[in-house]
Design a protein around this nucleic acid. Sequence first.
DNA 1: TATAATTGATAGTTTAAAAATATCAATTAC
DNA 2: GTAATTGATATTTTTAAACTATCAATTATA
Lengths: 296, 296
Amino acid sequence: MELRHLLYFKMVAEELHFRKAAEKLFISQPPLSRQIKELEEELGAQLFTRNNKRVTLTSAGIYFKKEVEEILTRINKTKNTVKQIHDHLNGEFRIGYISSTYHPLLMEVLKEMRVHFPYLSIQLYELPTQKQIHALEEGKLDIGIMRAPIASTQLTLNTLFHDPFIAVLPANSPQFSSNAALGKYLAEKPFIFFNRDYAPAYHQKLVEICNRLGFSPQLSHEANNVHSILRLVESGAGVSILPHSLKEHYKYLQINFADLKNLSIYTEVVLAYKNNNHQEALQWFIKRYNPTPNRI
Amino acid sequence: MELRHLLYFKMVAEELHFRKAAEKLFISQPPLSRQIKELEEELGAQLFTRNNKRVTLTSAGIYFKKEVEEILTRINKTKNTVKQIHDHLNGEFRIGYISSTYHPLLMEVLKEMRVHFPYLSIQLYELPTQKQIHALEEGKLDIGIMRAPIASTQLTLNTLFHDPFIAVLPANSPQFSSNAALGKYLAEKPFIFFNRDYAPAYHQKLVEICNRLGFSPQLSHEANNVHSILRLVESGAGVSILPHSLKEHYKYLQINFADLKNLSIYTEVVLAYKNNNHQEALQWFIKRYNPTPNRI
DNA sequence: TATAATTGATAGTTTAAAAATATCAATTAC
DNA sequence: GTAATTGATATTTTTAAACTATCAATTATA
């Protein structure tokens, strides 16, 4: 028995007409009759009754039809999945990340990943959260490192860590004994923000922090990149508030950091990927990529 | 793609060695390599890595192996079931019944059955309950009409009806106003019983009825067939107690019947067949054969 | 009722593809 | 460094699928 027999049988069972079935199968009628006969002989069961004018399924044939349909469906599904697994391991793997991602860890993980998946072309894209969400939904990214909240039912989220905030000040700034004193200082300086459209939720969070510190920020500069903001602060262009985890990665800059005490506002950094995506490289990345700095 | 490809793949995946696999498949190595290559091309996925000395499955191959094994198992199961359905419809159907079965109904059902299942050879066997149980368990009967109790975990039971008992007397017997009067009459007559070994539970029940009527029967004759018992009674050889339902079917005999009042002892008539037997003819018979005389 | 049309089966031929044989290059083991 | 072992390749042989032509049986229609 071969799949051909099953395929031919299915068509005859649907058409209940050898000539029509043969036509649909793009073969002539005699070989079809022959194949069905062979199948019946191998099974040791009659599948059709031929009244020389009317073809009908026997009980065995009815059962076989149901089974064959399921088997053929299963085979096709398997073929597709196998192709997917292959492509996922031999194609591209696109990672999105936000500018505030801790790069040394990511670079380390990528180095290992290239050894594990030698035929996979791994690509990095620095993108803001909103753009990552769309790219993930459209299948243009495989995984994204971004900030909550993520409003999408198509994506599965995986919390990496909760990050508190810290004030970023020029090198000549004084020390502050309280949030109030810090607030007073920040209120009088030009405030460097992330672009509102670029990261709306993040922007909103910063406004809330300022309010809690007792002031409304003077929105003087806008940037859409952590590095740019830090460079602006260093040059004395103003102050800002950024995720705490960055402090460790920018020690070489001539700036001061000032803790915000007892302020339970955090930014949540997550891994996001499309629901039901079980591709091997993705699963490997999720398992391996676990920065855990300042985890709460 | 053909089943051949799946079968060949499975063997190579198990052996991880083309020559050994080819040997086990009773073909030479080159065509095996060719078929696997064809399969990989059709799937668009590499299934094996060949390091010119070591064959291993890729991730896609590992997945495919699991699926192929399940698919091939499924196909084999389907083949067996189809054969079974065919054989059950084109082979024999053996029905066991006890002598007290109401024949006109059974004959009517069989007539219909032969129309419904024209290729089925339907065979009847009059057998006592115990022999039917063994025959069913051994697959020598497909269904049995018999009396409870049936002590077998291999059989599924289907109650047909509960039958009370009735006394069978010669034509010259008087009328009785009470069970006590009847008991007194029966006590003095030779009692015709079913053979004890032949139908032990039934025999036991009759003894209990006699006790309830206030006497111990004189076991003069034994028979193993309802018709024989009735003929013996008709000839004046003695009296007996039989299932009530028989009264309707032996009206032509020169005998009297005497009801046993308020005696809640019944014999249960059941259909019995092997557990998990879903053969079409059996299911049809169970559904159709439903005598319901004296149902309680 | 006779004739034409339609059905699946059969016979014989052609074609495609699976399998066999012989051999190769690459690797491993000793 | 040599022999043995591996899967791949080239070529031929064999198998079997598919084709064409035709048939007998049945049904529809005039």
